[in-house]
Amino acid sequence: MKLEGTYIINASKEEVWKAMNDPAILQQAIPGCESLEKISDTQFTAVIKAKIGPVKASFTGEVNLENLNPPHSYTLTGEGKGGLAGFATGSADVSLNEHNDGTELIYLVDAQVGGKIAQIGSRLVGGAAKKLSDKFFSRFAAVINGEEENPE
């Protein structure tokens, strides 16, 4: 499954880049994120609760930052295990460009799900993932801009 999107964030490239590497901001922005801990500069562990169709699961997993090219781009790779609900793996290429209104963020996600989520929820995964991505970037932008974002 592939997803792509573009967001304009009202902040400088450097500010956005910093936020992209700040676990506290990321945790606020990731929907359902219960914890995000920095293991090293390029490695995080995360616990994320997600519901796709009838399958609700708590995913624990690792997030790695690769291909670091500050403050222009990186690749996020992740792998989450949701017990009997299955697993999700994926990567996101994120790049930043200067823009009249601040910074343009472009992402390209390639994700796969397996196990029960794929079996029962496949039909819904695309829609759910798109929604989660939208939620993430709108919150991310809001957090950077210091706006109060309604958590749901």
């Binding site: 796969q112 799900v113 397996g114 196990g115 794929a118 079996q119 029962i120 496949s122 039909r123």
Partner: peptide
């Protein structure tokens, strides 16, 4: 079966 991942995506009476 999803060609890339090999997941059975018609795995319930919903699909």
């Amino acid at each position: 079966y999803d060609k890339d991942s090999g997941q059975l995506v018609t795995g319930s009476y919903m699909d």
